[in-house]
Nucleic acid binder design. Sequence first.
DNA 1: AAATGAACCTGTTTGC
DNA 2: TGCAAACAGGTTCATT
Length: 271
Amino acid sequence: MPELPEVETVRSGLEPLLVGREISAVSCFRQQLRYPLPDFSGVVGQRIEAVARRSKYLLFQLDGGQTLVWHLGMTGQFHLLSKQSEKGLHEHVSIELSDGHSLRYRDARRFGYAGLIVTDEIEAHPWFASLGPEPLSELFNCDHLFAVCQGRKAPIKTVIMNAASVVGVGNIYAAESLFRAGIHPARAAGKISKKRLALLTDVIRQVLNEAIEAGGSTISDFVNAEGKPGYFSHAFQVYGREGAPCLCCTKKIKRMVQAGRSTFYCPCCQH
DNA sequence: AAATGAACCTGTTTGC
DNA sequence: TGCAAACAGGTTCATT
């Protein structure tokens, strides 16, 4: 489900609802999601100081010096319930807050995962140690992308989707960015001029910012913390539009498979 | 070393 | 209509 704009939408929605609240209990309805769930007993009585994000991870910073790290996988969702209620379909964890609210984690496919990490050790943790820069930060610039692509024969699409190059760019935004930059998704990364990579850098930032503004992209099931969908899917120019006319040249949008994922592109506008 | 494909799961859509 | 195959926003691991 979520790429960077969707995770950011969830983060900004949860932040005002959770910061300052204290965790009074945690119940797990199964032992593991993608990985075994952490032992939550130590978080009871701790207050949530901040809700942050790194890459596609949500970071619930607790006042005891630990951070609850959560990845939503493909179908993970958080919902804040105001009343006690039965476990809903595909709900796996319930975090009770001292004000009576209940934060539920729901995830049909269970590709999501969570960990409890000492806040000062997050950057060194295996989930974070080899991550590239945030695409909306100064660290992600033309020089960086050029260095990453240098000498690589891999297709540019798989390079920008690799979190070691830059984080947060998933299948949708990779396709949309390459279309806007006029770059063919299968082009070898090392064969793209620095000038065109500079354009790609700008366009990735633009696309992600626009998607955040729109509250993310909902294809079938993404919803924010209030249960509402995002609207960026209406702005897709290539993703999911196989056979439909290119909005630029009117030729048919094509679909190909790269590294096991669908790629949508215009064979006329992208080189 | 680097790139592809399978695996982890369930739900929904597509095609015969 | 029914059933099976294909496909889905992510990441890691094993295999070329």
